[in-house]
């Protein structure tokens, strides 16, 4: 049983046909070639697969593609403006918010969603806001610094 679904991915209307058991992240990576969204744990703990579904951050490894029919999806590829990085991406680069980079797409998507809801997050709010994202390299210090700086840059931009 395959079902046609319509999505708006990073502003572009797409139509794909999926089996009901196919995950959103599988459509993004394997059918649409958007490999910036990573699969880390595949058990909805690590947050490497975070994208926005209708403006809310979700773990795309824990959402069926068929559930998203008619929805808007934003991935890490949809954040930059051409060659100009989103202020949060620039802040991650500037403040060493990454080392190996595997968790980074999910971190950035969660961080921007956090700042959308709380434009001036405290350090504690950043920590709780990134509860669903795990990094094995940085020890988080650089990430927290990056999110603070990214939030300030977003406010100014």
């Amino acid at each position: 049983m395959s079902i046609p679904i319509r999505l708006t991915v990073n502003g572009r209307a797409v139509e794909v046909t999926v089996e009901p058991r196919i995950l959103l992240v599988e459509v993004l990576r394997e059918q649409l070639g958007l490999t910036g969204t990573h699969v880390g744990c595949d058990t909805s703990q690590c947050g490497a697969c975070v994208v926005w579904l209708d403006g809310r951050s979700v773990k795309s490894c824990a959402v069926l593609a068929v559930q998203c029919d008619g929805s808007a999806v934003t991935t890490i590829e949809g954040l930059a403006d051409g060659e100009v990085l989103h202020p949060m991406q620039a802040a991650f680069r500037e403040h060493h918010g990454l080392q190996c980079g595997f968790c980074t797409p999910g971190m950035v998507m969660s961080a921007v969603d956090l700042v959308h809801r709380n434009p001036r997050p405290t350090e504690a709010a950043i920590a709780t806001g990134l509860y669903g994202n795990i990094c094995r390299c940085t020890g988080y210090r650089g990430i927290v610094n990056a999110v603070r700086a990214g939030a300030e840059a977003m406010e100014q931009s």
Binding site: V58, K59, G132
Partner: peptide, 9 residues
């Protein structure tokens, strides 16, 4: 409950 992404779903 869970984390922000789990709470969104």
């Amino acid at each position: 409950i869970g984390d922000p992404q789990v709470r969104n779903r």
